[in-house]
């Protein structure tokens, strides 16, 4: 089990950093520009996974398990979030028959 960090370390940390930042940015842009609730939600998940990737890389580079533990926490929390989020989206869908967030304007922004 100790070899995987070495594999990770064969690639410079900056690469991971740029990669996950790019992924994160894609997620952010997606959230800000898309209208479909599910797509927005998937973009959020993308952001979380960008974080996970970076954490894993950092964990390998620092030889510190706490970052990996954090990944676990993030996954668990993300799962819970998925559940609640999907439930909310389904509930909304049943009422307005759409997942377009722009249709929801009963409350003004």
């Amino acid at each position: 089990m100790n070899q995987i960090p070495e594999v990770i370390r064969t690639i410079p940390l900056e690469y991971y950093l740029f990669f996950s930042t790019a992924l994160f940015a894609i997620g952010v842009i997606g959230v800000l520009t898309r209208r479909n609730a599910i797509v927005i939600f998937m973009c959020v998940e993308l952001m979380l996974n960008a974080v996970n990737i970076l954490l894993t890389a950092l964990s390998a580079y620092r030889a510190d398990a706490s970052a990996q533990v954090f990944v676990f926490f993030i996954m668990a929390v993300a799962a819970a979030e998925v559940c609640v989020g999907l439930a909310i989206i389904v509930m909304t869908y049943r009422n307005i028959r759409s997942t377009d967030v722009q249709l929801l304007s009963y409350l003004k922004w």
Binding site: F72, A76, A79, A80, V82, C83, L86, A87, V90, R94
Partner: peptide, 23 residues
């Protein structure tokens, strides 16, 4: 067409339990 909510429930529960099991 919309389908029975039970399928959604199952899916949602799966997500939760699966992650817990992976732990």
């Amino acid at each position: 067409t919309p389908i029975s909510y039970k399928y959604f429930m199952t899916a949602i529960l799966f997500v939760l339990f699966d992650v817990e099991i992976i732990f």
